[in-house]
Computed example of a mutant assay.
Amino acid sequence: MQKFIQLGEGYGDVFELEALIQNNHQRIKSGIYLHVEGKPSTFILVMAPVRGNFQALYTIYQGIPMTSKSRQKYKIINENLEKYNISKVEMTTRDPGDFHDRTQYFQYMLGVLRLNNLIPPLS
């Protein structure tokens, strides 16, 4: 079972993510950016499954600005991924606004991530 766990907002989310990477880098499978044109990107930190099939997917939901002026969060995350040799994937996805609510968007993304072999299939 994969579960999205949303981190805080503002710069607090990046500091939480940075601590997660530093303290759990041995459990991290990958970092995934989900880009939507003209909107801030979403970032997902994919953890290895624990205790059976539970897999945490820590996310910064639409909190990574991608304009040329404000890419500081993107830079901080990438530096941490590189420091611990964690693979990074970047992909373009549907706009979360296309969905009725955030839960539907996350269900859609679970399917996309499974189809692209970025997380394991349901078992």
Rank of each mutant, 00 (worst) to 15 (best):
M1F: 10
M1P: 09
Q2S: 12
Q2T: 07
K3M: 10
F4V: 05
L7G: 11
G8I: 05
E9K: 14
E9V: 10
Y11D: 13
Y11I: 09
G12A: 14
F15C: 08
E18P: 01
A19P: 03
A19V: 07
L20F: 09
Q22S: 11
N23R: 10
N24E: 15
S30N: 09
G31L: 03
I32D: 00
I32N: 00
Y33E: 00
Y33Q: 01
L34G: 00
E37L: 10
G38T: 06
K39W: 05
P40D: 15
P40W: 14
S41E: 02
S41F: 01
T42Y: 01
F43E: 00
F43I: 01
L45C: 06
V46H: 02
M47Y: 05
A48G: 09
P49F: 10
F54H: 15
Q55Y: 04
L57E: 02
Y58V: 04
T59M: 04
T59Y: 00
T59V: 07
Y61F: 14
Q62S: 12
G63E: 03
G63D: 05
P65M: 05
M66F: 07
M66L: 15
S68F: 11
S68R: 13
S70F: 08
S70A: 08
S70Y: 11
Y74V: 03
I77K: 03
E79K: 15
E82Q: 15
K83R: 14
K83Q: 13
K83G: 03
Y84L: 08
S87H: 11
K88T: 14
E90I: 05
E90L: 06
M91C: 05
T92L: 06
T92A: 08
D95T: 02
D98K: 12
F99Q: 03
F99E: 02
D101R: 15
R102P: 04
R102Q: 15
T103Y: 11
Q104S: 10
F106C: 02
F106E: 01
M109Y: 00
M109T: 01
L110F: 04
G111L: 06
G111H: 05
G111N: 11
V112A: 03
L115F: 07
N116W: 03
N116P: 04
L118R: 04
L118I: 07
I119V: 12
P120E: 11
P120R: 08
L122Y: 11
